[in-house]
Design a protein around this nucleic acid. Structure first.
Lengths: 199, 199
DNA sequence: GTTAGCATGTAAGGAGTTACATGATTTT
DNA sequence: AAAATCATGTAACTCCTTACATGCTAAC
């Protein structure tokens, strides 16, 4: 009972998901990851390479020596996802963890939505919306309880925060609507008819 | 050259800032902090109490025994900010650190804007706007370089991200305008005529 | 030929969380 | 009197970053 779902699973998910596009080596993976995680932080080698080793030991990915040009000490190691890795990917995509875990992983899950079915997509989206709404309610409750003189700037920060979350909720709601009524794209994302060829 | 500005300074700033409102003990501080940091994470005792000890050793805060009702082992310890603590607060409010540092601390600094002068406020706001714009430019550059088939959902996530940051930039711009032209509140925060009674 | 970028790793340390440990005070 | 909440702390552990260490390959 002392070892619940590690948070490192975010990186696992990202790596496994990216490797679905085809074999890749660490350096390339890192670049893609940094684009994907994007807004801010970059992933360091000190995290990536140990993670790859761990996934390897767990049998979720396999390493294959790259081109035979690399006869030196360390050849360019190319990783592929295994069947077990694919299963783990699907588990992580659909898993319902604690609030913080799901919040941390929402973006990365969303980015891989094409590789899941609609049922999962709706579950993830609705879970996200519910949590955002709960936070909104909590903050608004706390605000109404605090009748202490609110600082002008602190109040503005709160207002902006609430507005941002409300906007996020509307975004999610649009996405849910688009998922459900496929073919009725009022203002959602493009229909994009191609069914995504595998690899 | 191996010990640049610690990131823990965020909590230092928050604690020092809150103690300006009057003496407080740890438990109360934590509640206020959690309201303030708000959207998500809560601060744990395992961080707060060691932080208080550290600030105490550094002479930035002072502890005074609370009411004499507490004759037992651990009395309710009430903390006050010292002169040195006030100086450190002002330093942290105006300090220009690396990008990540300033981004991490923007919210907390903003919340304490009432306790600084306009010069600092403008500097912090303009710094924030500049960094957001830079990120926006970088992402847009990367997007134009990546002509690889973009996944439908990944693209939507990007679009939403860009939109959010653009909105943030507009918010900051409004605030800057409001700061500069005090008395010309087009659509900025409320004028709020009361000068905030101390405690 | 030397700089810049590709490529893979390890060691040390920072920052914070969880879980544990303890006891006082207030509410039910 | 039991339960909840106030209140203070410590130890172990996790995750990640920084800095170091190494060498190949392409561009200038």
């Amino acid at each position: 009972m002392h070892r619940m779902a590690r948070r490192a699973e975010t990186i696992d998910l990202a790596v496994l998901g990216l490797l679905h596009e085809g074999p890749m080596h660490g350096y390339e993976l890192r670049k893609r990851l940094n684009l994907m995680l994007g807004w801010g932080r970059v992933l360091s080698y000190g995290t990536l390479y140990p993670t790859l080793k761990r996934l390897l030991r767990a049998g979720l990915i396999e390493e294959s020596p790259g081109s035979p040009t690399a006869v030196t000490g360390r050849p360019k190691i190319v990783y592929t996802v295994t069947d077990a890795g694919h299963e783990e990917f699907e588990r992580l995509m659909s898993e319902a963890g604690p609030t913080a875990w799901e919040d941390d992983n929402f973006d990365i899950r969303f980015a891989f939505f094409s590789r899941t079915d609609m049922e999962i997509r709706l579950r993830v989206l609705e879970g996200r919306r519910m949590r955002l709404q709960e936070r909104l309610d909590r903050v608004q409750r706390e605000l109404s309880m605090t009748q202490a003189e609110v600082d002008r700037y602190a109040a503005e920060l709160q207002r902006h925060g609430v507005e941002s979350v409300e906007r996020e909720v509307r975004w999610i709601s649009d996405l849910i609507r688009a998922e459900r009524g496929e073919g009725d794209p009022g203002s959602g994302p493009e229909p994009a008819p191609q069914p995504s060829g595998p690899a």
